[in-house]
Design a protein around this nucleic acid. Structure first.
Lengths: 293, 293
DNA sequence: GCTGTGCTATTCATAAATGTATGGCAAACC
DNA sequence: GGTTTGCCATACATTTATGAATAGCACAGC
């Protein structure tokens, strides 16, 4: 009884996405192929795994009962990939790096260029993402994050803390006198976050209570948030280093004591000693040092 | 990173058999295919999994490091097959039965015929084997054994005990007076086992000490053992019911109190409620009842 | 030493798997 | 109601994987 394990891989993708088309996109195959593979597995096992509907496929009870074992196979497959990659002695190969969209946009490109210049044999993949990537499945090899990592089985390095600052565009300040105290800010158009409450908590530390409606404009996506500041929508917060290097904005309330953002590097422990990962890790640490005071 | 899981299946077969040819036979594929699949996995992972030699393939350190995870995948795949099969409502399908070579030869054929007559939609596979088959990987669905099962996660049924008897061929007894006491046997040609010590232990219970050199001829394979008895090589032991129905032999020392062989049916608990397994199980119990007093 | 056996590696023909294109259905949107 | 979008199912052409055959090597047995 030698069921083809690759069919389980397809089954799992369809079960989790709920459609042949989405699973095909995920696996880099085509929709008819996924349909055929699922059917082949159903034939091999002699059971119906999905109810087929116009909007996709729904797991049957039997299909659902197979999920834990299918997920266990994926876990083990991930372990194989990780173990092999961790034992590779080659400098040549892919390194996949994840960081927030903001960091990937504003900070990493020159660091990437440095790595590429020095190591053309390393293929870099940069994954801007504001959600965590799972290092076990090699969704990323190295994560650069502004919070302390929580995933198990990882090695971490605290690179330092990024300072924040209050900024407004020169175009905005040409029409509004710069605020001189934290309270002054309340008379200005504030740029804030929608669901994220970090700024609200920051004001609370200065004895100022406000809710998100105090913000004249709100955006949780950090790169767009910074463009709103640069465009003169109002007063906003950003990384000190970036703001000081941006000719479109000026820091205000520079003596205001703001929280800092910790900067951490993370890699799966199996991978940490892989030569190319180690090289990229070291150069990231070096490149970020220039960015952190 | 979507490594093809089927390649791991091939890797595992090659690692455990030590050769492409043997793995190909095991998986029902061809040797060049296995060679290519192993190479494809090596290319995908970027590591060398085997040292290739004229006599086969030897795992590298990296290859060996992947074994636990590969075995975990097989365990999970087995669970999938088992869970699906256990949920199948079809009476139609394969049922795989294992029993010792002796039982498969002398006892089961008429029972098989009965099952086939009554259930032509069930495909029977009979696996004569003196070693245990693993029910988890569906090497067998039902085991009929003359010892109490030890595998976990199985359901068992004790069908009864098979009595033993002492027998000699009519052709042998035509030339040698039948023994009247257990001690008389020592003056006869005894047919015994080579490595198996059951008969030696049986004699010890009658206060008679002997070793395997007391046997004029020794054979551990039970069907051949019985043919030696039938051919007149000497005095031997066998199942009472079979001996009494065999015109070529006669029971001697019928009042001798011999051990019995317990007869057990075993199936994996996941499979036990599958309709066709349940049917075959019931008919086996019924068919064996006619054989056990 | 020769033959037979068992192994891996390679080539070529064949079979199987896959992708592209299309049709039909259902739901959402204008 | 008509159009668009997204889905699965199917047919046909293309690509990929596989098996049969062969060569070369190492080892064991006669």
């Amino acid at each position: 009884m030698n069921m083809d394990w690759a069919l389980v891989q397809s089954f799992l993708a369809v079960a989790e996405t709920g459609s042949l088309s989405a699973a095909a996109r995920l696996l880099g195959a085509s929709q008819p192929t996924l349909g055929r593979q699922v059917k082949a597995l159903e034939d091999a096992l002699g059971v119906e795994l999905f109810h087929r509907q116009p909007k996709g496929l729904i797991l049957t009870d039997v299909g659902a009962a197979l999920m834990p074992a299918a997920q266990a196979m994926r876990q083990a497959a991930g372990q194989i990939a990780l173990t092999a990659a961790g034992r590779s002695e080659e400098l040549r190969g892919v390194v996949r790096l994840t960081a927030s969209v903001f960091v990937a946009h504003h900070i990493l490109p020159p660091v990437m260029a440095q790595i590429m210049d020095r190591h053309p044999e390393i293929e870099l993949e940069l994954v801007p993402s504001d959600t965590s990537e799972n290092l076990l499945f090699r969704e990323a090899d190295i994560a650069l994050r502004m919070y302390r990592p929580t995933q198990l089985d990882v090695v971490t390095k605290h690179l330092g803390d990024a300072k924040l600052g209050v900024f407004a565009a020169e175009s905005y300040l040409a029409r509004h006198p710069a605020p001189q105290t934290p309270e002054d800010m309340l008379k200005h158009r504030l740029i804030g976050y929608d669901r994220d409450e970090d700024i609200i908590h920051g004001f609370a530390q200065f004895g100022l209570t406000l809710d998100k409606h105090a913000f004249a404009i709100r955006c949780d996506q950090n790169t767009v948030y910074w463009e709103l500041v640069r465009a003169g929508c109002g007063i906003g917060f950003g990384q000190l280093r970036i703001g000081l290097h941006d000719p479109a904005v000026r820091q205000v309330l520079s003596e205001m004591d703001l929280p800092v953002l910790p900067v951490w590097l993370t890699a799966h422990e199996s991978m940490r000693q892989t030569p190319r990962i180690r090289r990229v890790w070291d150069m990231l640490a070096e490149g970020m040092a220039a960015h952190l005071p």
